[in-house]
Write a protein that binds this DNA or RNA. Structure first.
Lengths: 213, 213
DNA sequence: GTCTATAGCAGGATAGAC
DNA sequence: GTCTATCCTGCTATAGAC
């Protein structure tokens, strides 16, 4: 395990950037290898095909990164005795909007999953199994005891989805938000979004927003 | 204006279906013309290039359809004296989730705009100018007088965006919702989503959800 | 493990027959 | 206005040198 997978990693890095920005079909192997400063043969040597390179981006980069965010979330919640819904939602919103990732990393991360949600490939099943479904189950378990108003699990599922809807929307539609509102997406604005999502979500859940603030 | 633009219309129709399903780059002219039962030359004759065909799909189909939804929305609201936020939101949710469009049409419609939001091309500016910005302005004007809690316009803008976030999410992520919850996306489920969005959004706006129900 | 060279194919766009 | 035939470019993937 010397550093001879240096090229391999550079390819993965550049491939992720390009796939996120332009989508699978709009990216050519030549483009990736030019960015990674190596030759097209290297992709086929390390990953066999373009499709498998795409899958590997999710397997070895996207999923671990998403799991890192879950860890961040769980650590935040571990510090609190028995976290209220307000605390849970705030932790999720922060992990998703500010979180342990850089702004550019987060943006790429979202673009990739939006593409998969809008237009699923094999990558989606892998991602859903290893990240999305477990996270949903986790949040459902966290929130369920506090929300006796949700008699059936489906109501709670839909509410959790609504929260993700808002969260995803505010990251993936960043260019649109700037264009429609003319507002710059600076840290101040981002903090404001977190508050917005927390307040909106909590009240959507029918919980008093001030409780955990 | 005989019916000699029959081929032209078939191309537009099939192009929209394919662009929505697979995205611009994944669709070839050959694929479109095969579906439209004509030859590749016809595309270049009628639209000059693939890119211009894509733009024309938005210009002559997507934007008019979106405007039709706004008309539907405005007609609904015209029947009510001075509609409350609850009525406004419910009308928006219905227009967006049930609306005047068929389920397949609505799905395609969403997929196209999600792609543009995630990855804007020239089509986005056109769409934003002619549909998104006017709709935002309209809703802002409708809701503003009823929400004295929103002292600045930006809070209201963000709240309206949150509502769109949930709405868009529930249409574009339909495959994901089915996959994650195992629930079929039938009319019953769709009606449930409308209620969910209305309740969640209204409470997110800080308005009593029962008022307009 | 990384490179060059190339096979083999598919795509966009055009020219010209009908 | 629609078709066929064709050009040319750019792509993936492979074979083989280093």
């Amino acid at each position: 395990m010397k550093d001879n997978n240096d090229t391999k990693n550079r390819i993965l890095e550049e491939a992720e950037i390009l796939f996120a920005e332009k989508g699978f079909n709009a990216v050519s192997i030549r483009e990736v290898t030019a960015a990674a400063r190596c030759n097209t043969g290297a992709v086929n040597y390390h990953f066999q095909s373009k499709k498998k390179l795409y899958m590997e981006v999710f397997r070895s980069r996207w999923i671990p990164r998403e799991l890192k965010m879950y860890e961040h979330l769980k650590e935040t919640l571990a510090k609190v005795e028995s976290p209220s819904p307000a605390t849970v939602i705030k932790a999720v919103a922060e992990a998703y909007l500010e979180g342990p990732l850089s702004e550019e990393e987060l943006r790429r991360h979202r673009q990739l999953i939006i593409r998969e949600i809008n237009n699923p490939t094999e990558a989606f099943e892998m991602v859903a199994d290893q990240t999305l479904r477990p996270l949903f189950a986790y949040l459902q378990g966290r929130l369920h005891p506090y929300l006796p108003g949700h008699l059936d699990d489906e109501s709670l599922t839909l509410d959790i989805m609504s929260i993700f809807g808002v969260l995803l929307y505010f990251t993936y539609s960043r260019p649109m938000i700037s264009r429609v509102t003319g507002r710059k997406y600076d840290p101040e604005f981002k903090a404001r979004l977190v508050n917005q999502v927390v307040r909106f979500s909590l009240e959507g859940l029918g919980v008093d927003g001030k409780e955990g603030k």
